[in-house]
Nucleic acid binder design. Structure first.
Lengths: 144, 144
DNA sequence: TTGCTCCTCACGTCACGTGAGGTGGC
DNA sequence: TTGCTCCTCACGTCACGTGAGGTGGC
């Protein structure tokens, strides 16, 4: 008979995001995740769908970009700065100011794209090598 | 007046591969790198161009694939197994045997390609998100 | 000989893993 | 009430970073 949205326990959140309860508590400990709403010491943590989404995003960035947790924290803080900028954008209707805000947002996105592309370049090189090897093997098989 | 090929000290190797002397010694300690030819305890380690290449390959795999050093060790061991297979391939001239060896080699390469592609998928998704955001910002800028 | 880089312990750190011993909630 | 999952220390581990104190080689 609950009117509140679905609430999850830490193990369930860990399972859904492919990580462990320890990792979730650790991220909370270092301030990468907020402690979940209404959590008192010694009591069970309860999470919502939005908490799962936030964690998923963090893990995705971490794995894809291979950054340290400190760098991840910075990325998140910049993300929050962007959210503030977006609110600012909607509050004003001065086109000059809106243009300036959009330009800043684009710069932020471009910086992240650069990070992604640098990582992709390494993977692409490795893939080229492997495909090359595969091709040589295929040629020899065909020649037999 | 040296007849031997160029020899490098550990700091130079670290600089060329973008890592640190500590990391090189650690990889040696856990058996991921062989101790360099002729190294006695307390004396300076000397490396050759082939050592640099091997280390570069290790670092590339580690960074691109995000594997642990234990997994990296396994990859290297499989790489050595492949080298043995290649020698076997050249020793025999039974086409049936050659075909079998080539098929095995291709399976190995395919397994590595799978690893690379899984990593790329995560990066591609992130890049799509970012490009999407960039597009939305561009649209708004154009509409102003 | 003077500077540099190198050497070997050995302790510190980051990002968790892994119990120990105990309490909470369907 | 019985099981499960959860809780908080707190120590262990992996992959190095970082001195301390000393020796090697252009």
């Amino acid at each position: 008979m609950s009117l509140t949205a679905e609430t999850l326990r830490i193990g369930e959140v860990a399972a859904r995001t492919g990580t462990t309860a320890r990792t979730i508590r650790y991220y909370e400990e270092i301030g990468l995740l907020p402690s979940p709403a209404g959590h008192e010491k010694g009591r069970h943590r309860t999470y919502g769908a939005d908490d799962v989404e936030r964690l998923e995003e963090l893990l995705r960035l971490r794995e894809a970009l291979g950054v340290t947790l400190d760098e991840l924290k910075e990325l998140v803080e910049r993300e929050e700065a962007r959210a503030a900028l977006r609110r600012e954008y909607h509050r004003t209707d001065d086109p000059a100011e809106q243009r300036a805000i959009l330009a800043q947002l684009r710069t932020h996105v471009d910086r992240q794209l650069e990070l992604v592309r640098r990582r992709r370049a390494a993977l692409d090189e490795l893939e080229r090598d492997l495909l090359n090897r595969r091709g040589l093997i295929g040629d020899r098989l065909a020649a037999l």
